[in-house]
Each structure stands twice: as structure tokens, then as C-alpha cells.
Design a protein around this nucleic acid. Sequence first.
DNA 1: TCTGTATATGTTATCGATAACATCTTCAAG
DNA 2: CTTGAAGATGTTATCGATAACATATACAGA
Lengths: 382, 382
Amino acid sequence: MAAPNLNWQQLANCRKIASDDIDNSIRNLAQIIRIHSLTMSIGPKQPTMMDVARLAGVSPMTVSRALKPNTSVSNATREKIRKAADELGYVLDSTAAGLSSRRTGFIAVTIPSINNANFADTLRGLTQGLREANMQVLLGYTDYDVTEEERLVEQFLRRRPEAMIVTGHAHTDRCRRMLEKCGVPVVEMWDLPEHPIDQVVGFSNAYAAKLMVDHFVEQGYRKIGFIGGDPSRDTRGQDRRQGFRSALQFHGLDASRMVAEQRPPITMREGAHSMRIMLEKWPDTEALMCVSDLSAFGAMTECQRQGLRIPDDIAIGGFGAYDLSEQSLPPITTIDVSSEAIGRIAADVIQNLLSKDIAKDPETIHRIEPRLLVRDSSRRRT
Amino acid sequence: MAAPNLNWQQLANCRKIASDDIDNSIRNLAQIIRIHSLTMSIGPKQPTMMDVARLAGVSPMTVSRALKPNTSVSNATREKIRKAADELGYVLDSTAAGLSSRRTGFIAVTIPSINNANFADTLRGLTQGLREANMQVLLGYTDYDVTEEERLVEQFLRRRPEAMIVTGHAHTDRCRRMLEKCGVPVVEMWDLPEHPIDQVVGFSNAYAAKLMVDHFVEQGYRKIGFIGGDPSRDTRGQDRRQGFRSALQFHGLDASRMVAEQRPPITMREGAHSMRIMLEKWPDTEALMCVSDLSAFGAMTECQRQGLRIPDDIAIGGFGAYDLSEQSLPPITTIDVSSEAIGRIAADVIQNLLSKDIAKDPETIHRIEPRLLVRDSSRRRT
DNA sequence: TCTGTATATGTTATCGATAACATCTTCAAG
DNA sequence: CTTGAAGATGTTATCGATAACATATACAGA
């Protein structure tokens, strides 16, 4: 039997090459040979590149090229293909493209909470920075739980992301191992880990807390309290608490006025609740630092509800530079950590790492400088 | 030449089958034959199922089965495979799995803004509802821009999601067409479209606004204003404005006290700014509805800054039942639209659609009932 | 006219998994 | 001891694209 000398176009119209059309010596090799019988697309299935190619009268490879920029395809052909694709309502299959090219276009990102303006800002910075590179963020939130983070990281690695971005330095052992061995750049953000996995874009939470304490002390406050969440979960909150404590100790002040009743993330309501406890236990507290602006706002309104004036009776400081702390009455002193910049920088870092594989910047720690924003909530009336 | 009768194990150890080992009649068929020369994995590449199979002494198919629940694999084999996978640090490739099985496990979701507690709540409801089904949310935000939505939807469709969830009813023509023809369930949420694409989980924004107006009127307020954003972008805000207007007209009241200076989303700061304009233009305004709690808070603090008392001098109403409106001083009357429930229900709808393809529930509109939460910001002192 | 270099297009061989089907064991019921 | 159903495992043929290589065509310069 003469083997038919078909090109892809003719093949495309074949339904099936019956196996007995093939001679015996081939049969014997059945185990290492695949007969690609190209069948016509059936039913209401989504069209493939092959369908577009057929309609445009070119090869699938040309379609592939025509559909992406900076490829050598003549304008006429490109236009013809575009039209064909349009007519069929063709949509590229990134799944197949990713498998073939080994570039999925995914950047996996885990944050502690979706419901947090700071992380949302970071995410905005990230997506904006990655848009031009045509990268898709794969987002997951851990609810401040390292076990959940491990689960997410595992899920994400299956998607073969081109980089991983995680929040903070606390990971389960297995999670850390997975990140170390995953073969793509890893960025830890919002923290300065002692033992970074790879890249870092973050700041010292302890130092940021110290900024606030120093400010309080400078304003003449001495009896200073702290409101945060249960330290076992939110490590950034824990670092702030630790920074608070050592800063107070540095100034020779008592560092025992701490309330940590709640499970992170602590919100306005919990801030208010903690404030009640604080005022019961230490009614003479002069200044109060809160782990976030939300809890600071809750604490402040609780004071106001109890008839205390801010800052005359008690000064308040928050963390995170939320809109809220600027718009509240009075505006709340806070720490600005440039949440959005963290995301932008992380995006840059990743783009650099993915492009210039040679001239790899030896710099792997990208340090953000937290800034104290002094507002009325902590100004000593003179 | 005798064709070697190799099994997959032996094949796996072959480096390459030289093409001239194959007899001529095969050569002639070159165009429709592929010689699968299985090469050993080289370098620090991620291990594949084949590697795991080799180590465990089973076929790749068995590995595939062993790694997913509810498949018939003996415990001994499964354990052996688990151990092998663990030793190699094997991570399943969902990209390949998705291509082969045509189930990617993605649910694509677009929301207007990531930085919005309402949408964040919806997202929480969604991810929680989808977790058990092992679905991964692919999230994008449109910045209240239908063109951006179109871009996102196109990007997402390439990932072959198993369902699409979009916010609102306003889409570009092309976007609508894409959604209609994409072949998977589509859910429009946060709205009640006149012409739904497919499924809907939402509520009437106009009706919700009417609830607030009715409440104001009942409390005896007559000169009622509205603060929102530029109507051309945020259609939900626009619907609220429209509901506001017709409710006032229904009560025979003037509906011209509207400020819409800003580009959505309008935040606290913009709420405050609009309030200044409102008070300049209509200083005798008695009650004010805002398009969201954030703008309501901004408006309220602006009033307080100007020495106006809430609600004695002016009543305030917001939208969305943010934490903020509950914790502020005074607490702000608002509309609760059960943001998280919208997400939960959307997740349920999708799971139903994806599982029981037969007994398809004819119900496609899932209507949420907005609830008015009356708080101190709008209570007429008696 | 010849040659070389772009530019445009086609061909081959995978990427890493899974569905569908085939085969082989086991063990209980007859 | 036979039969058959259920369970365990292997084999074949893709899924839809793209990298890498091969080929054809056009056009400038010698």
C-alpha cells in the first residue's frame, strides 16, 4: 500500500485513518508509534487554532504567530487570520499554550486577608505593575493561618506560576520547603525575614512600632498601652508588639499595658472592645498604640463614647495609613508603610528576574522605610 | 529489522529512537506519524508523573489515579506512589491535567474594585463556597470600567474557566457576546439585569434606595439630597440615584439636590468634598443619602467639622452596611445587601449547574432582599 | 546573474496529564 | 471447578497549543 502523501490541509479533512490501512511492520511498532488521526471538530465545541487555520487557509503555526505581537507574519495574512478568528469567535486556549511553552503567565500571590485596605493596595500595585507584562495574578488569602497558606501554596504550585509572592516570613516547614524547591522566584513581602527564602520586599514592623513609641514619648506621654490581636497568628502584629515593648523598655517605661483578647484580624469592633478592657484595667493610660488603623478607630470611638477627649484625655496611634485615619475626627496618627509601593516593587523585582536571567541583580532585600504621619489624635495641646 | 516489543518501563529508559532505525514504509508516513521518543528527564527539571511512576514501579496512569480520591487503587500501591511522589517532591501539573480532562478548576470573577469591603465580602462568600468543590477563583477588578471588564473577560476566557461571574449588568457589546457564547455558566451579580445573560444573583439598587428615602420621609425629612459619583461609570450607583429620584417624586418632593462631582468609586474624602458643595448650594438640606457608607462617613465628618450635629441638623444615610457605619459616632443608617450571601449563593448556583446537568433548576434569578438598618444618624429626636 | 540575508510560512515533535478502553486478578456463588 | 462481577492496573489516543527547525520567496548588493 502506498503511503498517502498528505499535507495538513488534506489531513484536516480526513475523518480517521483506519488502522488496517497501515502495513504490518508499522503495527509491530504500535507501542512506540501514535497515529495522529485528525478528526473534524464535532458539535458546538469551541473552535481551535486548527479551525481558524482552515478557514484562513494557513497552517496552525501561522495562526499562532499571527495572534501574538512581534512575530513575522505579513500584514495581509495577519488580517486574514484575525478576520477568521473573529468570525469563528475563536478564543486562545492559555492552558494548552502554557503547557507547550512552559510559560503560564501566572504570578501566584497569597495575602492574609482580602478584606484589608493595605493588602488591597499592595495587590493594586502588583496587578498594575504586572499588567504590561501580561501576567495574571492568582490570588489567595490565608486568613492569617500558616496551614492555610501551605494549602494555598501547594494548590498554586500546581498551576506552574512563573513566580510566587507570599506575605510575611512565617511558613510551615513543608510550605517553606515547597517554596525553596519550586524553581521560580519567590518574594516574601510586608516583612524583613531573618532567613529569606529568596527575594524580599518589606519593612521592619518592630522599627515602625518604635517610630510611634518615640513620637508618644517625645510628646510627653509616659503611660502608653498597646492593643493588638492574639500574637500567635498575625506575625506582623506580633512584631509590632515586640517593637513596641522594646521601644518602651528603651525609654525606661513600663511595657505591660497590653490587651490582646481577639483573634486577628482585629477590626473596629474589636478595637472598641479592647479599649473597654484597657480602660478598666489601666484607667490612667495616656497614649495608646493600636496594631492597625481600624482598631485605632474603634478604640477612639469607644473613648469618645465614654466622654474622653482625643488627644486631651488620651492619645491614639494606628498603623497602616488607611483613608479612615485621615478622615476621622480627629484624624489619627499612623504609620505609612507604602502598601501600594510594596506591590509595585514586587512586580518590578519579578519582571527583572524573569527577563534578564544573566545580569541578576545581587540585591535581594528591598527595604521600605515606614513613615510616621503625625495627626491630631496624638498632638499634645500646648 | 525486528520491531522491539518494549513496554513503557523500558521505553522510559530509552534516550532516543534514531529515525533511521525505522523502515522506509514508515518514513513515507512521516507526516501522520509521531515517534514518541521518551527521553529521560534532564537537569533540575520538575519531576513528572512519569518520574513518579518509574520510581514506584507502576504506570503513569496508576499514579494519576493514586493521586486523586475515589479511584480504584489498592492501598499498598497508593502508599507506594505517595511515598515516591513525596521523595521526588512531585507537584501535579494542573495545566496539563486541565488540557487533558477539560476541567481547569477555575471560576473567573470580575468585581469593580478590590478595595471595597462589600465586594471583598462577596469574594469571601464565593471562595468559601467553592473551596469544597476544589475550585480556584480567578479574580480581576475592572475599576468600574466596562472596557476594562471586556479585556478581563477575554483574558479569563482563555483560561477556560468552568464558570464566569461578573458584577452588574453593564457590559460592552463584545463582552456580552463573549459571555453569551462562552459555553459555561455565567452569573451576573449585585444587580437585577433587565436582560440577563444567564444566571443572576442580585438585588434592585433602585428599590434599596427607595427604602432609604421612605425612611427619611417617614422621619419627617423633606429636603433630601443625594451624593454619588459620576453616573456614567458606576451603574449600581446610578441605579441607586435613579431609585432615589423616583422615590422622591413618588412622595411629591423635590429631587434636584444631587452632587456628583467625582469619578467612582467615591471615597470618604470625596464624600466630604461633595458635602461641602452640597452645603454651599443647598444649606437647608435636612437629610442626605450617600451612594455608599464610605462617602456617608466622609460627608458626616465634614458636617461635624462645620459644627453641624447629626442627626439634629442633618440626617445621613449610607449604603452597604460596612463595619464603619456601625462603629462611627453616631452610627450611620444604611442598607444591608448581604454582600457575603451574594457570594455564597453564586457559589451554590455554580456548583449546582456544574454537577446536575440534567435536573437544571429553571430558576435563574436569585433575588436578594436589601434591608434598611436604621441607626442614630437618621433618627429624628422626639 | 549569482549570492546572501531577511521575511514569511510550513513541518515535526513534544509539553504532562487523563479518558476510554483493555486486560488481568480475585474471590464468591453456583 | 466454572462463571462472573468487581477491583486493580496497563495501553492507546488525544487535549490545543508552541519551540525548534526547515523551507520558500523576495530583494539588495557584488
